[in-house]
Design a protein around this nucleic acid. Sequence first.
DNA 1: TCCATACTTGACATATTTGGCAAGTCAAAT
DNA 2: ATTTGACTTGCCAAATATGTCAAGTATGGA
Lengths: 77, 77
Amino acid sequence: MEKSDLLKLVGKRIKEIRESKEMAQVDLVVKMEGNIDTTNISRIESGRTNPTVYTLFRISQALEVSMSDLINIELPK
Amino acid sequence: MEKSDLLKLVGKRIKEIRESKEMAQVDLVVKMEGNIDTTNISRIESGRTNPTVYTLFRISQALEVSMSDLINIELPK
DNA sequence: TCCATACTTGACATATTTGGCAAGTCAAAT
DNA sequence: ATTTGACTTGCCAAATATGTCAAGTATGGA
């Protein structure tokens, strides 16, 4: 799988979960540890950035899901 | 959880899986896509670096496990 | 002891993430 | 038509991941 496809899948998954919890990007950001703003969330959700594990971790905490949930991806082999 | 603790957990998990498959760091590296060498694996396994999703993905492929397996961590709350 | 293998560590250049702000788009409501 | 809310995009600086090589450590075997 290509890098860009992976990032799109991860981003889509994050967005899905966020929306399923009816959170806006802002809501996510205010729940996250440390400094971050919606710019970064937007970039991650659209797959334009390759987030680090720690960033994923903070997102998963704010969404109240496990990190595994965030990258539980159908690997299109 | 602290960033450094997270990174140590992830690194430990990767090392565990690699060793369970009786692979040396070199074996992992040669199976991975793109350029990488054992230096980076060492840094990731020891938690001194905060790997990106794509790097985790390439490691998971080379180890023939899912990415979820790599970050399936007991979250110490 | 000497050597080979495995891994760690330091230093370095390059690429990219992160964090921040400002401006732009877009849809819905007033 | 204007405003409001949600999100995107461009740009910037700072921090850091990546990739590479060289040197160092540790272990076990010949």
